[in-house]
Design a protein around this nucleic acid. Structure first.
Length: 970
RNA sequence: GCCGGGGUGGCGAAAUUGGCAGACGCGCCAGACUUAGGAUCUGGUACCGCAAGGUGUAGGGGUUCGAGUCCCCUCCCCGGCACCA
């Protein structure tokens, strides 16, 4: 390569200078309520990034996309007079960090510290304006102390079905509190990953492989800690509604939780006292049940299998057990199963139907048993065809009368019909449409104690323990086979020092190797924790005169918590990161997490009222964007119409949403509702879609538990969520080391500067879109920044940059004023709308306009620097300083109020209007801005070109849209 | 299979309630300034056509004075779920 290219402007000097200045001045530190410098008159804005795992490989250019979006918003909101909370931290526990440590042969604490330093350096070189005083690290004892504390809150509570919320376990009146705790130990078939040496949550298993590393996962029965997230299933669905999240993410969560309405039906096993309960969403097809299927692992199989069938059943069960989840899905195409030899009695028609075992029925869903209705279920159909089981039609697509008397199996249907229709061959249900048939059969079953209406969820309880070293130890000890909580005063519980922290591979956690740590002898005041109390005894209650000093030796829990534990609440810790008394101070929490005030318009633009000239500006849009009704779920079709209807006229809803869709809506819980007050929470959360059902679901769950227990002021953590798109490599492929297409931001910064990196990433397309990297694109944006620089600066004979003599204190002309004010308006509005690419293009138009202006009005340049500042903070700070300060200016530019535009300057006296003939533009005319329809039409008819085009034809119609166009129809 | 999101120049992309398709940038072409240009500035650049003009937003149909935008059907790409009873 040739010599180093000349820098188009001295970013290599400017950028470190201003980064050091911000650090020294703590420009982006935001005080909490009650702290020095806090201004209670300002509204708050909490803008959050998904904090990274500090991996060893560092950031690539895809990571900062979201960080840049939030940085621009944060800087902008600050200039609009908000108290902005914009923090960063490290999700440093968990598999990636530990895998890296094992690979490099170092202790994870060492590699984590190195990686954090590396990441932080990279983020700072990009010029991100975080409040580093609030930095958190999940592996810091001062942090995980509270993660453990929150776990104990969960452990110490239960979900009261009466109140539909978590309550201290003391309010539970049953005799076995351990059966209802939100954190409990259970023996269950779990996802065991031999390669990683740990169990994994369902959410961490993708296509039968571990999400981290892609290793095979098998089912294995193990004793594990579980969190009872299923108790919150309904609320986790319902309370999505008020959130301003992408519809896709809401649906993803909804589908993951998987609510379905149906019925439980009890069948008896012929000749034994046993019962089989099934779950079905189609109780109306009960008369068409011609056999039953149990999951291979179902406990009843052993009790009902006949002697003749025993060997075959055992063989089948063993074969199924050996299959990994992956094999089981791969082999899903071909149905398999074995008859148990037993029969069940259909409760409604008392028919004797065979009971089979087949692996297409899953133990984990419903009751692990089904009634099979082959005529109306694809899977049952396939199975029945393969094993020659009877198929009976009980739903007809069209109404048919007089079928009841017919022999039930006389007409075997030719194909499987899964839709809704009308009941046939179904006794009392005959003729009823499916919807009514479901209701009727459920009523009949309930009346006879044969079944009941039920709601079933796909969501499973959260498998919360891991057999790994690098995670939070459980604050739990075991005594006489019973678990109990450590006291609050014993936290944090540090992990033991271990020379060998690799997984054991046997399922026993590595912490078990630390014998001295595991053997635990509580001192007198640590004993006697009341296991039924959620509130741990205060230390002052613990000291009892003359009590024994040493208790019996007990053992510690040796599992650790999963990666997600720390990330479930980090946003709360940011609110009060240094609090050593509480996980977050009450005042700080309620200040930063509270919802917006009712008057959205006034609060989102405090500067407008102060300066009194803002008018109906961009800020009003911000208000409407965060309107919680705007992104309601499930409103297919003209949502604005039925929204209006539901609010202003309750009857409109009833009339307007007839038909099957209303039922679906009810199921989803998304029917029209009145606008709810904002649930509050983080004002803007930006991150990738990969956390749609992991972090975002877990965090909501923890948040709700803490809210129920009175520790938090809002029921939801994240009010508004935006997903940034994926950054592809220059070859259009996903960036990866193996493809060799990874771009390191440090290299881009070295060549073009951080401001160019920032502006390019924001200019390349919409925030949410997937987009490929292009170095040529960076070059283009770099040129734009250099042009900005040269608007103010020029090079002298000695090759030094000095203030350009073209910059003088004159008033901009009319055309310039229009560009200036249009730019203020558009950039502000575009930032509010997260449309950063169009904001930058407007600033390019500004620069193009002024590039050849000589002289150049100083005020114009100053305005440009103000609106460009959130995007290119280093360059603009430098020029702001060099252009000199005016009275009333603050420094740095980062704290200067956002400029105010004058709408009057944007209105043209005369406007150009296209004239169409039959929809095609044929001429353009200039008319006064307030010209009447008649005047415009007359002018259009007066055009010579139009006369040509309409010559000899009859003008049938003239459409005049003032301010837009004229269309003449001939 | 089901559920989302998409498909606009050579490329990245713009386009309030339906109202001049392609803003802005890259690339390319030409010019200016220059010892020089991988610097800078100016102009041009959807496609076909010398032009007048015609054609164009994945494809087909529809509504409308007017459709990238609304409705119906089809195709393709990306993401998610996937025997969920």
């Amino acid at each position: 390569m040739s010599t180093e290219r000349r820098k188009p402007y001295p970013f290599d000097y400017i950028e470190p200078k201003w980064q050091a200045y911000w650090e020294a001045q703590q420009t982006f530190h935001t005080p909490n309520p009650g702290e020095p410098g806090f201004d209670p008159a300002k509204p708050k804005y909490f803008v959050l990034d998904m904090f990274p795992y500090p991996s060893g490989t560092g950031l690539h250019v895809g990571h900062p996309v979201g960080y840049l979006a939030t940085d621009i918003i944060a800087r902008y909101k600050k200039t609009r007079g908000f108290n902005v909370l914009h923090p960063m931290g490290w999700d440093a526990f968990g598999l990636p960090a530990e895998q890296y440590a094992i690979k490099t042969g170092q202790h994870p604490a060492v590699t984590t510290a190195q990686n954090v330093a590396g990441f932080k350096g990279q983020l700072q070189r990009i010029g991100l304006g975080y409040d580093w005083q609030r930095e958190v690290n999940t592996t810091d004892p001062g942090y995980y102390r509270w993660t453990q504390w929150i776990f104990l809150q969960i452990y110490g509570s239960w979900f009261n079905p009466e109140t539909q919320r978590a309550e201290p376990i003391a309010t539970y009146k049953g005799d076995n509190p351990d059966s209802v705790r939100l954190a409990y130990v259970a023996e269950a078939a779990v996802n065991w990953c031999p390669e990683l040496g740990t169990v994994l949550a369902n959410e961490e298993v993708v296509d039968g492989k571990s999400e981290v590393g892609g290793f095979p996962v098998i089912r294995k029965p193990m004793r594990q800690w579980m969190l009872r997230i299923t108790a919150y299933a309904q609320r986790l669905i319902d309370e999505l509604e008020g959130l301003d999240w992408p519809i896709g993410i809401k649906l993803l969560q909804q589908n993951w939780i998987g609510r379905s309405e149906g019925a439980e039906v009890h069948f008896t096993v012929d000749g034994s006292g046993e019962n089989i309960t099934v779950f079905t969403t189609r109780p109306d097809t009960l008369y068409g049940a011609t056999y039953m299927v149990l999951a291979p692992e179902h406990g009843l199989v052993d009790r009902i299998v006949t002697e003749e069938q025993l060997a075959e059943i055992e063989a089948y069960r063993e074969k199924t057990a050996r299959k990994s989840d992956l094999e089981r899905t791969e082999l899903a195409k071909e149905k398999s199963g074995v008859w148990t030899g037993a029969f069940a009695i259909n409760p409604v028609n008392h028919e004797r139907i065979p009971i089979w075992v087949a692996d297409y029925v899953l133990l984990g869903y419903g009751t692990g048993a089904i009634m099979a209705v082959p005529a109306h279920d694809e899977r049952d159909w396939e199975f029945a065809r393969k094993f020659a089981l009877p198929i009976r039609e009980v739903v007809s697509e069209t109404p048919r009368l007089g079928f009841s008397g017919e022999s039930p199996c006389s007409a075997e249907p030719l194909e499987c019909f899964v839709g809704e229709g009308y009941a046939v061959h179904s006794g009392p249900l005959d003729g009823l449409p499916t919807f009514d048939a479901k209701a009727e059969i459920t009523r009949l079953l309930e009346a006879q104690g044969l079944g009941r209406k039920t709601i079933n969820f796909k969501l499973r309880d959260w498998l919360f323990s891991r057999q790994r070293y690098w995670g939070e130890p459980f604050p739990i000890i075991w005594e006489d086979g019973q678990h109990r909580a450590l006291r609050e005063t014993e936290l944090p519980l540090h992990p033991p020092e271990l020379a060998d922290f690799k997984p054991t591979g046997t399922g026993e956690p590595p912490l078990a190797r630390a014998h001295d740590w595991v053997q635990y002898r509580p001192t007198h005041h640590e004993r006697g924790t009341d296991r039924t109390s959620a509130v741990f005894p205060l230390p002052s209650l613990g000291v009892i005169e003359g009590a024994e000093m040493d208790g019996p030796v007990v053992t510690r829990e040796t599992n650790t918590m999963p990666q997600w534990a720390g990330s479930c609440w980090y946003y709360l810790r940011y609110c009060d990161a240094r609090n050593s008394e509480r996980f977050v101070g009450r005042e700080a929490e309620s200040y930063w997490m509270k919802g917006p005030l009712p008057a959205a318009g006034s609060q989102s633009d405090p500067t407008a009222t102060r300066l009194g000239t803002g008018g109906p500006s961009s800020a009003d849009r911000a208000g409407s964007q965060s309107d919680p009704t705007a992104t309601r779920l499930g409103t297919g079709g003209p949502s604005s119409v039925d929204r209006a209807g539901s609010q202003s006229d309750p009857t409109a809803t009833q009339l307007g949403t007839d038909g099957p869709s209303s039922a679906d809506r009810a199921v989803l819980g998304t029917g029209p509702r009145a606008t709810q007050p904002s649930p509050g929470g983080v004002d803007l959360y930006v991150g990738g879609t990969e956390h749609a059902v992991l972090h975002l679901l877990y965090a909501r769950f923890w948040h709700k538990v803490l809210y129920d227990l009175g520790h938090l002021s809002t029921p939801e953590p994240f009010q508004r969520l935006v997903n940034q798109g994926l950054m592809l490599g220059e070859d259009g492929q996903k960036m990866s080391k193996s493809r060799g297409n990874v771009i390191n931001p440090d290299d881009v910064i070295a060549e073009y500067g951080a401001d160019a990196l920032r502006c390019y990433e924001m200019f390349m397309g919409s925030l949410e879109a997937t987009k490929p990297w292009s170095m040529n694109g960076v070059e283009g944006v770099s040129r734009f920044l250099a042009r900005v620089w040269r608007l103010a600066m020029e090079e002298n004979q000695a090759g030094e940059w000095e203030l350009s003599p073209a910059v003088v204190d004159i008033a901009p002309d009319k055309a310039q004023l229009k560009v200036i004010h249009a730019t203020i308006k558009k950039v502000g509005e575009d930032i509010e709308a997260l449309s950063f690419n169009t904001a930058i293009s407007q600033m390019m138009i500004f620069v193009n306009t002024f590039t050849n202006a000589n002289p150049r009005p100083r005020t114009a340049l100053r305005t440009l620097l103000q609106v460009l500042n959130p995007f290119a903070p280093h360059l603009t700070e430098e020029l702001w300083e060099r252009l000199g300060f005016e009275e009333g200016d603050t420094r740095p530019l980062a704290t200067e109020p956002w400029p105010v535009y004058d709408p009057a300057l944007l209105i043209e006296d005369e406007i150009e209007m296209p004239i169409q003939v039959n929809g095609k533009v044929r001429d353009k005319i200039i008319v006064k801005k307030d010209a009447t329809k008649e005047e415009i039409e007359a002018a259009a008819r007066g055009s010579a070109k139009i006369a040509e085009w309409t010559a000899g034809k009859e003008i049938k119609k003239v459409v005049v849209v003032p301010g837009k166009l004229v269309n003449i129809v001939v």
